[in-house]
Amino acid sequence: MANSIAIRVYKIAIYKKNDRKSISIDNINLPTSVSNFMSSFIKEFDIPTENQKLERSWYFELVEDSPPSAFSGYIHYGTFGFESNFVDINTKKHNYHRKNTDIEEIPLFFEFWLPKNTHFGFAVFQSFQSRSCVQLITNAIKEKFKTVNPGYIISFQKIMPNDARGSAYYSAPVKKLRLINKNFYADSEDNYLGEPDIVDFEYVMSAKRNRSLGSFFSIFSKIKSGSRSMVVHRGIEFSEVSAEIKVGDKVRTVGILGPNKDFGVIDLTDSVDIGKNGHPTFQFLKRETDTILKDFNETLVGQQDED
């Protein structure tokens, strides 16, 4: 499958300005509750909003809501500002010449979940071919939240599986570890093609059947110890690392090291259900997301009780 499908999970927290301790997600002292805020925000931005500087657009399509705790649907994310041709892959004919004022939109799944009696909520954002609108959306939410709740701040912190101690991800066995070096220079001694070239170089370690390379947490701890931005293996520097882990009867790919946008990403590409439009079905993404969030929630609630 050519199109990579992944999700990013964020923890939502509410703080009083200049206070580092989060408050309850359903705190009654908020002028506008988080639930009411999310509901009105989605409704307000259900028509295209353009960012001329970034040449991007977005708007919400609410598919399912279970107020006051859950909202899910699509963010229609668009790009504009350049011309291109649309060609039929079968006939090779030019069907359309895209103008720089045309917006190319793709549907990206989202979910906001606000469990009761907790100090956190969850936000899930899908990416498609590495295209994501997380920063656009979260920045807009933060700015709007400050206007309706003066003195309070809403934050979004990306959740890594290792952040949820005790979760299924935390102790999941690693079946495969992939080290990646983008734009690696292969000289004539190393390059089987004969000529020196710039290539994307991968080194893959796979566990034998019914065995593992270790738990996700143990592997993550070794790779992310200190502030290292790369891993050196057999004299070669690798700037990206991902792990395939076994969670229940499914294999998930999780980013461990790499660009910030890929760090902590949960890849669903290998198991995704694709609709006629070439995008993941809503039912598939909702089912996968709910399973992941349930696991994270149970673990974070336990940590909250310990605190």
Rank of each mutant, 00 (worst) to 15 (best):
I75Q: 03
S4M: 11
S127M: 03
L268I: 03
P115I: 02
F120S: 00
V34N: 15
S39D: 12
G255S: 14
G81H: 02
W113I: 05
I198M: 00
V254G: 04
Y170A: 06
Y77Q: 02
M38L: 15
N210F: 06
P150I: 04
T253P: 05
F86R: 15
D102S: 00
S271E: 08
F184P: 02
G214Q: 02
A172R: 01
S33A: 01
S227W: 14
K142P: 01
S171F: 11
Y152L: 01
K142E: 05
F220S: 11
N3K: 06
I28G: 10
R20G: 15
W58R: 04
E44K: 15
A172P: 02
F201R: 04
V251Q: 06
E189C: 07
I266V: 07
F125R: 10
A164C: 08
S206H: 05
V241K: 00
Y15L: 05
K142W: 01
E244W: 11
A70E: 11
M160T: 13
S39K: 12
R287V: 12
E306T: 07
V63M: 15
F71N: 10
N36T: 10
I23R: 01
S221T: 15
E50G: 03
N3D: 08
V247D: 00
E195Q: 14
K21D: 14
G275V: 04
K175F: 08
V148R: 11
G166P: 13
S171G: 13
V254Y: 04
H233G: 05
T299Q: 05
F238N: 01
V34F: 09
P280D: 01
F216H: 06
D102Y: 02
E61V: 11
F45L: 13
L62W: 09
N117A: 04
L54M: 10
E44T: 14
K224H: 12
R234D: 00
K175T: 14
N139C: 03
I28T: 10
L213D: 04
Y170D: 09
D26Q: 15
Y96P: 11
I7S: 04
E104I: 10
S171E: 09
N36R: 09
F41V: 06
V63I: 10
K175Q: 13
E240H: 14
S227V: 14
L108A: 00
V251L: 06
N277V: 04
S57V: 04
A207F: 02
T79D: 03
N210P: 03
V124P: 04
S69N: 12
S24H: 13
S225H: 09
F284C: 02
R209V: 06
S212Y: 09
S39C: 07
I47A: 09
I5Y: 02
D249F: 07
R178G: 13
I103Y: 00
S22K: 15
I274T: 02
S188N: 10
G214N: 06
H119E: 03
Q126W: 00
S167I: 10
D88E: 06
F45S: 07
E64F: 08
G275K: 11
L30Y: 08
P196M: 11
